[in-house]
């Protein structure tokens, strides 16, 4: 079983600072992490290969920081990493991201492609579906459980009104929700071993893509503004013994007129 897992590196969103005067987010200097659901997808892939044999390839498109970020994927059990790094790729939108990932995947053998349901920062869900479309693959979205059958896969999809059990043959693209697995915390030994695992890097040239087909130039979207919503909060901390703070709070409720009584 050859599995490709698509992982995106994300700036640590818990640490974002918002500029007070302009409401602009400050992203400079933030550490990068792997996407949450991407890690769920990777964990699932590693477990499948542990049981059935095969290979897990971690595929990621991003900035040079990926060389460091991807180590976690290797420590978690990916057998190899394939990084797509090129200044020309910067500011790729969902359309160009899918195009670039597809070019890389087309050069490989695979039975199954796993993605997250949405990326932790953008959460558009577009990349996996566009990828499936380019590669001509059937896609199963919102998968919270995956089993193998003789002919392929049986997946449980988590839809709004029902759980849907579906079957599909391979090759296929599956995008997963966070319920599918609990990503493992790699041990020290696994972290050390990860350093020796194969890591390959491709640029636009390796993928036969020209600079105007990728990145900002080819982007189908233009961001007009990207600001934090306005929030004016009182930030009052109530202090004292439990009885005192509870009294202060109920007084505040009355003062604010927020509860009907």
């Amino acid at each position: 079983m050859q599995i490709v897992v698509c992982l995106k590196q994300i700036p640590d969103l818990q640490q974002i600072r918002i500029k007070r005067d302009t409401r602009e987010p400050v992203l400079e200097g933030l550490p990068f992490l792997l996407g949450d659901m991407d890690k769920n997808a990777l964990e699932e892939a590693v477990r499948i290969v542990e049981q059935r044999g095969g290979k897990v390839t971690a595929l990621a498109l991003g900035s040079p920081k990926l060389r460091d970020t991807i180590k976690e994927a290797l420590a978690m059990g990916a057998d190899e990493a394939l990084l797509l790094i090129d200044p020309a790729f910067a500011d790729s939108d969902t359309m160009t991201t899918a195009k670039i990932l597809a070019k890389a995947i087309e050069k490989r053998e695979y039975d199954l492609i796993l993605c997250g349901e949405g990326s932790t920062d953008n959460y558009s869900g577009q990349v996996p579906s566009r990828l499936a479309e380019i590669l001509g693959l059937p896609q199963v979205t919102y998968v919270r459980q995956l089993e193998f059958t003789e002919g392929g896969l049986r997946a449980t999809r988590d839809m709004e009104e029902a759980l849907e059990i579906v079957e599909v043959s391979l090759p296929a693209l599956v995008s997963v929700t966070s319920e599918i697995s609990e990503p493992r915390l790699p041990s020290l030994i696994q972290i050390l071993k990860a350093a020796k695992k194969p890591l390959q890097e491709w640029t636009s040239e390796d993928l036969a893509l020209s600079a105007h087909e990728v990145g900002k130039e080819a982007s189908s979207l233009e961001v007009i503004s990207n600001l934090a919503p306005e929030q004016e909060r009182k930030n009052i901390t109530l202090e004292g013994e439990v009885d005192e703070v509870v009294e202060q709070l109920t007084d505040a409720f009355t003062r604010e007129g927020v509860i009907a009584r």
Binding site: P25, A228, P229
Partner: peptide, 13 residues
């Protein structure tokens, strides 16, 4: 956008 930290206004080209 950014996991809910911001609201992005975008135009499709």
């Amino acid at each position: 956008a950014l996991g809910g930290n911001t609201v992005a206004s975008e135009v499709i080209k």
